[in-house]
Design a protein around this nucleic acid. Sequence first.
DNA 1: TGGGTATGAATGAACGTTCATTCAGTCCCA
DNA 2: TGGGACTGAATGAACGTTCATTCATACCCA
Lengths: 209, 209
Amino acid sequence: MSVRAAASSTSGNGNSDKRQRILDAALKVFAAEGVHGTPVPPIAREAGVSVGSLYRYFDSKEALVNALFQATKDDLSQHLLTGLPLLKLDRSIFDEVWHRLCTFARQKPDAFRFLEMQDHHSYLNDTSRNSEYMLLLPIRQIIELGQQNGLLSDHLRPEVAIALFWGSLVGLFKAERLGYLSLSDDDLRQARDACWKTIAKPIEGKTQE
Amino acid sequence: MSVRAAASSTSGNGNSDKRQRILDAALKVFAAEGVHGTPVPPIAREAGVSVGSLYRYFDSKEALVNALFQATKDDLSQHLLTGLPLLKLDRSIFDEVWHRLCTFARQKPDAFRFLEMQDHHSYLNDTSRNSEYMLLLPIRQIIELGQQNGLLSDHLRPEVAIALFWGSLVGLFKAERLGYLSLSDDDLRQARDACWKTIAKPIEGKTQE
DNA sequence: TGGGTATGAATGAACGTTCATTCAGTCCCA
DNA sequence: TGGGACTGAATGAACGTTCATTCATACCCA
């Protein structure tokens, strides 16, 4: 018994550890080369396992892509939503959402990029596609609440507001990745304030244009 | 002469006409399946030519992708910039830019999608990558002018403003393509006004936040 | 008839996937 | 306790398929 426990540190269980290593490796190479652009062997090499082993943990490349997509979505979901008050909206909550998304994009650039790729669309099954939709539901709810309590402009339909907000954030980090700019903390704060103006209700008595 | 002109509709000169048919076909299938996800034969089939003919007009798949990328960028460039005053900025010019981009995205969804794909990045040569950068230079200039004349907020660096603006627009049409929303003309107008608020100077005497 | 053009089967390189084999670790009985 | 039998995870060469590309052939108009 005690022997077995000691052995597990070297290779004993190694079980889900290896599975995780494959997922990590796949995220890295997919983010760099795209899903269609990445053969299976480089994934295995990056993970430090053989191709055969990879197929022990995942039935196919498609299954790997879907598992990775859902795991990454869940990761973002958790990062964004854990402990976030979903039943009210004020400026500080908006700032917190912005901050969390920026933190995620900064700490896990490969994950952020992978989620935004379009290239893997033909690989995704219904569950994966659905998990994409689910992530945005809480944000939509927050925006609707904000519109009801008069803090957000009700000129924009919530879906449109989400698309603008999300698109801005993605555009920002995409531009940085492509080398068109480098985002300082101050840039991100200014961008945050600008995005708030996009969806916020104009200060009373003023119509826009 | 007249005979040749008449014949050209079926197969007569066919010369650059065929080349254009291949580009059109490539745009269509690339937009649908991605560059990595599209074999060469389906492109030829869609264009109504043989695979061998395709290789008469383009040295390789890579050459085709680059030619298409640059042609599409040029198309957007022309659509966006022709006759646009580049030495001033007011609200009506912003609206015109927005309108032109929306028109392009609506009339040529495949072109708009293709330009925003990331999937073809490994195929692109320096010229193509550069043409991407060149497109945004005039917009950058317009934004700088707007900041100098006090119409646009100078809190945002021009590159950041561009990334936010462009990201919003892309996010909007991407959401529509994925079926998350359907954009009415009114939605587009509301989104335009919201984006203007993002980059415009706040009405005097009010600080944002 | 000759020279440029179009064709699509043929080619071999690269892909996703499989499977015969290896081998570290476990078990069991003397 | 020592040693032979068992287990199943790990391996990577090999498989069939699909890809980008070529080229022998057919075609067509001048």
